[in-house]
Each structure stands twice: as C-alpha cells, then as structure tokens.
Nucleic acid binder design. Structure first.
Length: 299
DNA sequence: CACCAGGACTCGG
DNA sequence: CCGAGTCATGGT
C-alpha cells in the first residue's frame, strides 16, 4: 500500500545540482540518494515514516511517496510538506538573485556554474544545531563523518527491502546521554558539553525554531542566539541561513567563504573585513544564497 | 613536525 | 570592544 502526494517546483530549479550537493558525502546516512531519488526516514507523531522523493521534469513537480506501511494522514502530509519545502527552499523565487548575480563580478561565474541549485536547508533546528556545532573549526569531510557516527549512536532505524534507513535523533534521546558517550564519538570536550546542554534545552522546550523565526532582522536573531553557550557568530549565522532562512545571514569570518572569494577574485590573500562588510551590503537579502553558492562552487 | 580546517571560550587590557 | 592564548581531531 503506497500513499503520497505532489509538490510543485519553482521555475529556477535543478534537481541534478541538488542531488550533487546531497551526494557530496558517499557515506551519508541521514538520507539515501539512489537513481535520482531521495529516501529519508522520519519520526512523525511517534510513527516511523520512510519517504521517497522523485522529480518529474515534465510535470515540474516532486512526488513524495511513503514506502513503508503507513497511511499518509493529513498531519503526516503537512509535516512532510513543510520539511521538504524547507529542505529545497521551494517557496523562494530566485529571479532577483539571478538578476543581481548577472552583473556581480564575484557571483557571475558562480551562478552560471550552479544554475538552479537551491539553498539546501536543515529544516529541523536540532539537526541544524548538531551539524553546525560539530562542524566548528574542522574540515567538512571530518564533520560529515562525525555527524554520521552521531546519527548511528542515537538514531532509530527503519528496515525496508534489506536496507537500513536512519532517522535523525531526538534531542530527548541525546539529552539523556552522558558526556563520555559523546566523547567516544571523537567530539571535543567543549562540543560534547555544548551538545548536551542544547539537547536539554530543546527537550525542555527552552529553545524552539518558532522563537528564532520571530525576529525580522538577522542581527537581533544572532544576538539572541549567541547567548547560548557553544553558539558563536559563525554558528548563529549558519543556522539562520540554513534553518531559519534569514536571507541576510552572513558568516563573514567563515574560512571556506573567505577562501572561496579569494579564489574567485584570483587574489593572493583573503578579503579584508571591510571588503566583507561591503559584500554584505551589496548582496543584502541574498547573502545566504551567495554564501551557499560560493561554498559549493569548488566542490 | 607544522599547519590548516565552513570556531568558541575565557581572560587581561 | 579586541587580541592573544587555549582547546584538541585528522588530513596533508
């Protein structure tokens, strides 16, 4: 028994570019990409749901099918719709970004090369926090491998046709762990403490995505978010970019961003702070897209 | 061995 | 507010 639904796709949209991004880690277990389809497991209203997303170019839509034996209730459908729309940023019109990029010396080639890539978000606040905190000051590849061990340590699984699908852990589960368990994943002392602390805050309802979505400018949201131990300016901006979807979020000191701009400008040194402030102003509400495109331009 | 990788904290000034 | 020192994994 299969059940599912469809989601319309915006005009500037490249499934291939999205899949390429999603396949940057061959060992990724938060989802699985196979034959141009994405499968991902969820825990929705206490029920394990395995869904498969397929792109239909002619119909310009995505089909979302539930593979395991679960009826697609209105609630499940609504939550999957929210998640997937957020994941691939389906509700955003990129035309003004592309217009701006056309005459922008840095973005021009980047947008051309990655035409149709959407800002791949991290819809779940806990997952975004884990990813960004784990990723502090290490290479992306190392961060990806740590994230996978984290999921395998705390996540539940769905078995389907001889394959295992992992569900990203709940904060409640991680909140009950002891620090040694996290240290065993090769996280540093600091990161283990940050993650325990934040899991407990989420589990107790002291941190919610809705709260951070209330701010209408990113400065206020950043200021509020950096009150939390373990969240500095870089982490706050990354979460605002990829989870809260603040267009003007801009991790200005990010090493990858600085190196990317350096390469694009064929310069022998990283851009200055003044230069970065100029770019922030120039890119305005499209800063987050600019950053995401630059990050992925050299992969 | 040094240095870097999509940083954050504390503390002294 | 800012700079230096500290933390501490893994690849090159």
């Amino acid at each position: 028994m299969r059940s599912g639904f469809f989601l319309a796709v915006p005009s500037i949209f490249s499934w291939s570019k999205i899949l390429k991004y999603l396949m940057r880690d061959p060992h990724e277990i938060a989802y699985r990409v196979e034959k141009r389809r994405i499968r991902r497991g969820f825990l929705i209203d206490g029920v394990k749901v395995l869904c498969e997303i397929t792109y239909h170019p002619r119909l310009k839509n995505l089909s979302v099918a539930i593979l395991n034996n679960v009826v697609c209730s209105d609630s499940i459908r609504a939550q999957l719709t929210d998640f997937i729309s957020d994941w691939f940023d389906l509700d955003q019109d990129l035309s003004t970004f592309y217009e701006m990029a056309q005459t922008d010396p840095i973005l021009h080639s980047v947008v051309k090369k990655q035409a149709g890539l959407r800002l791949v978000g991290i819809p779940d606040l806990f997952e975004a926090l884990v990813w960004e905190i784990v990723g502090q000051e290490i290479t992306v590849n190392f961060a990806l491998s740590l994230k996978n061990s984290f999921i395998q340590k705390f996540g539940q699984t769905i078995q389907y046709q001889d394959k295992t699908y992992w569900i990203f852990p709940d904060p409640e589960t991680v909140a009950q762990a002891d620090k040694e368990t996290l240290l065993g994943l090769k996280l540093t002392n600091h990161k283990a403490e940050y993650l325990l602390d934040i899991s407990q805050k989420l589990a107790r309802g002291e941190m919610t995505k809705e709260h951070y979505c209330q701010f209408d400018n990113f400065e206020d949201a950043e200021k509020d978010m950096t009150k939390i131990r373990g969240i500095g300016p870089w982490t706050a901006n990354c979460i605002l970019m990829r989870c809260i979807k603040q267009g003007d979020a801009f991790p200005m000191n990010d090493v990858g961003l600085l190196n990317g701009i350096k390469t694009l400008e064929k310069s022998d040194q990283k851009p200055s702070k003044e230069k970065m402030l100029q770019l922030k102003k120039r890119w305005g509400n499209w800063c987050s897209y600019a950053v995401f495109y630059i990050w992925n331009n050299f992969y």
